[in-house]
């Protein structure tokens, strides 16, 4: 606790993010982002890029704002009363918080998977078909069948559920439910998938499966993942961002962050001195 307060002072008000926060082939680029919950500021002047088809891990102690920041990227924070986002957030040059932007297609392009698996109380099939149906992506049943099958296959769930697509999604195991939620997100063909601690409610075997899945998905999708597990960040991501008390401390190649971080706070966190 002492450590945390001391280090907060060492960051100062005009700190600079160390490492390489910006890239050339940015899918998402964020500059000077500030987020407030009512009077309280949760994110302080964060700027970073997430490259195309890259897996970006966001780590940091609890309450550091990494989930808040993630949820800004597809405006999930809109549903929270009193939440206000300032700054420039762009998806391929399009202003995410711009007046012209419609949040519905945005969320179809930037999907999100939550901490706790949240399948709808519908059949497995209807869970996957939900997104394509509301966006009117398909006109024929056969096309929908195809989307359901490919989504489940991409999520590595097809072989386990192909014989019981009519069974309720809520009846699956926790790990299967989470993969169902990932399949549901894939079904609307997003470009970016945000994952908010997707494995924190799962056992190690289910976690391993999800991590494998993330590696496969990264071939086609840009992924931003918030995680509390540093091993997970090290295993799945290309670059890692370290957040501390609402500030972005360091962004670097994952290998560098976990072997030779540029900032003393990052080092303190990954070596387990606090967090």
């Amino acid at each position: 606790m002492n450590m945390a307060t001391n280090t907060a002072e060492t960051i100062g008000d005009n700190h600079q993010t160390v490492g390489t926060p910006f890239v050339d082939n940015a899918k998402l680029s964020m500059r000077n982002v500030n987020v407030f919950y009512g009077e309280k500021q949760a994110i302080f002047d964060v700027g970073m890029d997430i490259g195309t088809n890259e897996v970006m891990a966001m780590i940091g102690p609890s309450g550091c704002g990494k989930s808040t920041f993630l949820r800004c990227l597809n405006r999930m924070n809109d549903t929270i009363e009193g939440c206000r986002v300032e700054g420039d957030l762009n998806l391929e040059g399009e202003d995410i918080y711009g007046a012209k932007l419609d949040v519905v297609p945005l969320r179809a392009r930037v999907g999100i998977v939550f901490q706790k698996p949240n399948p709808f109380p519908k059949s497995i099939y209807d869970n996957i078909a939900y997104g394509p149906r509301i966006h009117g992506l398909v006109s024929k049943r056969t096309e929908l069948d195809e989307i359901v099958e490919t989504s489940l296959q991409k999520a590595g769930l097809w072989n386990e559920v192909k014989d019981r697509l009519d069974a309720p999604g809520t009846g699956l195991s926790g790990g299967q439910q989470q993969r169902l939620c990932i399949a549901r997100t894939i079904a609307v063909s997003p470009e970016v998938i945000l994952m908010d601690e997707p494995c924190s409610a799962l056992d190690p075997i289910a976690t391993a499966k999800i991590e494998e899945l993330i590696a496969e998905l990264s071939e086609n999708y840009t992924i931003a993942i918030v995680t509390h597990s540093m091993q997970q960040a090290a295993r799945v991501s290309n670059r890692t961002a370290y957040f501390h008390l609402g500030k972005l401390i360091e962004v670097n190649e994952t290998e560098k962050v976990f072997t030779n971080p540029d900032h003393q706070l990052t080092e303190a966190y990954i070596t387990g001195r606090f967090g």
Binding site: N118, I134, C181
Partner: peptide, 8 residues
């Protein structure tokens, strides 16, 4: 949230 997250 799940539904909003899919763009509903």
């Amino acid at each position: 949230d799940g539904s909003y997250g899919l763009g509903a």
